[in-house]
């Protein structure tokens, strides 16, 4: 084969490898999980942990916000006195030991597998 053909062939193989690497490295759109926010006894919010967003949650003590970023979530702008919920830090699908709990607001944020 000619030199130019080798170059084209190698470029095709390289594109192939790159494509497969990119495909397997890409973030999954549907994680198979859902994060539920419970206020009192009712679920006030459900969100996909893979979709970046900030959700405002009403609570008994002024409410709080949940920031979701790159598959992790944490509490920000909480109006409670002790800030324990915010100090619990980032949670993720792989690393969720406890639900994030804000007792003054009566809000619990926990992970569940989504039925779909």
């Amino acid at each position: 084969m000619k030199k130019r053909e080798w170059i084209i062939l190698l470029a095709v193989i390289a594109a192939c490898l790159l494509g497969s690497v990119l495909f397997y490295m890409r973030p999954k759109k549907n994680s198979g999980y859902v994060v539920k926010v419970q206020h009192g006894s009712e679920i006030v919010k459900e969100f996909d942990p893979m979709v970046d967003a900030v959700y405002a949650i009403d609570g008994d003590c002024g409410g709080l916000e949940v920031e979701v970023k790159e598959g992790r979530w944490h509490v920000i702008n909480e109006k409670c006195p002790n800030h324990i919920c915010a100090n619990m830090g980032w949670m993720s699908v792989e690393d969720t030991l406890l639900p994030i709990t804000c007792l003054p607001n009566n809000v619990i944020i926990y992970l569940e597998e989504s039925p779909g």
Partner: peptide, 13 residues
Amino acid sequence: IAAVLPYLLGGSI
């Protein structure tokens, strides 16, 4: 189905 592309293209060589 594009997931099979690298496998198919590599096997086509």
